[in-house]
Design a protein around this nucleic acid. Structure first.
Lengths: 147, 147
DNA sequence: CGATTGTTGACTAAACTAATCAACTTAGTA
DNA sequence: TACTAAGTTGATTAGTTTAGTCAACAATCG
C-alpha cells in the first residue's frame, strides 16, 4: 500500500508551482532543483497534469509552466488520480468483473470502505489548502537549500 | 496504492479459517482450494499469522491450522500489518528521518491524514465482523464451487 | 540562426511480486 | 518401527513495475 514516487514527487511539483503563482512562467529546471527531482523525470511526472489541463506549458526560450486551473478548484483526488491512477486498493473495486467472487466477497467490502475513507481526505483537500498550510509553516518558498 | 496478493489472499484465508471455527483443525489444502490460492503460496501467507499467535498450526498426519485468538479480538489493522507491513502510504510517516523535508512538508501531512483515515476503517473492523457479514451474504461457507 | 525550453518515446537497471520447488520436521498410524 | 500426511523453511525464478536516463525532436525567443 505504498504511493509511488509519481504521486509523491508529482504532487510536490504541483504545489511548488502553486507557490510560485503570479511570478510568470516557472522553469521545470527550477522546480526540479527545489524539489530535488531530476529534470528528465520531472518532465514525465508533469506530463499528465499538462494533458489534463491543470498545467499549461510553453516551449522554447523564456518558456516554462504555469497553473492553468485555480488552486481552489484543484482537488487532490484529481491530482492523485492523474498521477497514480485509481486509488482503489484492489482492482476489483473499479471493475467487479475482474473476480468472480466480487459479489459475495466481504473482504472486498472492506477495501471499498478503505477507498471511501481515502477519497474523503483527498476530495476535501485542495491545492490551495496545501499552499496555505505551506505558507503557515513558512520555509521552502524561497527555494533555499537545507543541508 | 495497491494492496498485494499477500494482504488480499491472506485476509481471505484467515476469514475462511474463522468461518470454519469449531470444526477442529482445518487443512491448509482445503483453504487453498476454497480460496483458489496455491498451497505452497498459502503456506507462506499464513506463516506471519502463525508467528504472531493468531493462528495455531499442528504438523503431521491429522494436522492442520486453527484460530488461536478470538475473531472478536482480531482487528483487521493487526492482520494487515502482519501481512503487508505498515499501511502508511509513504515511509516518511513511520520514520520522518528518512527525508529531510519531513518537518515542513505539507504533502506529508496529507499522507498522514490518509493513513489515519485508513486506520479508522481497519481498527474498527474485526474478523468477527467479516464472519457475520459473510454469513449474512450466505454463500461460500460450504466451500462449494462457483463457475 | 541558434540558444533555450518543453515533448516524446525508447531503453534500462534494480527492486519487487508472486509464485514454485525441494528438503526438512513433526505427528499420527499400521 | 516404517510410512504417510501435514506444516516449515529457504532457495530460486519468471515476470512486472518502478524509477529513472538518454536521445531525438519541436517550438519559441532574441
Amino acid at each position: 500500500m505504498k504511493l509511488s514516487t509519481r504521486g509523491r514527487y508529482g504532487l510536490r511539483a504541483l504545489l511548488d508551482l502553486a507557490l510560485h503563482q503570479g511570478e510568470g512562467l516557472v522553469l521545470l529546471k527550477d522546480i526540479a532543483r527545489r524539489q530535488e527531482v531530476s529534470l528528465p523525470y520531472l518532465e514525465h511526472l508533469i506530463a499528465p497534469l499538462i494533458a489534463a489541463g491543470l498545467v499549461k506549458s510553453t516551449r522554447g526560450a523564456r518558456g516554462g509552466v504555469l497553473l492553468l486551473k485555480a488552486p481552489t478548484e484543484i482537488k487532490l483526488s484529481e491530482v492523485l488520480e492523474l498521477l497514480e491512477g485509481s486509488i482503489a486498493p484492489v482492482d476489483c473495486i473499479d471493475n467487479p468483473k475482474l473476480c468472480h467472487r466480487s459479489e459475495f466477497c466481504v473482504t472486498r467490502d472492506v477495501w471499498v470502505e478503505m477507498k471511501i475513507a481515502m477519497s474523503q481526505v483527498l476530495d476535501s483537500t485542495t491545492l490551495q489548502d496545501l499552499v496555505e498550510r505551506q505558507r503557515q509553516k513558512g520555509q521552502i518558498e524561497t527555494g533555499m537549500y537545507y543541508i
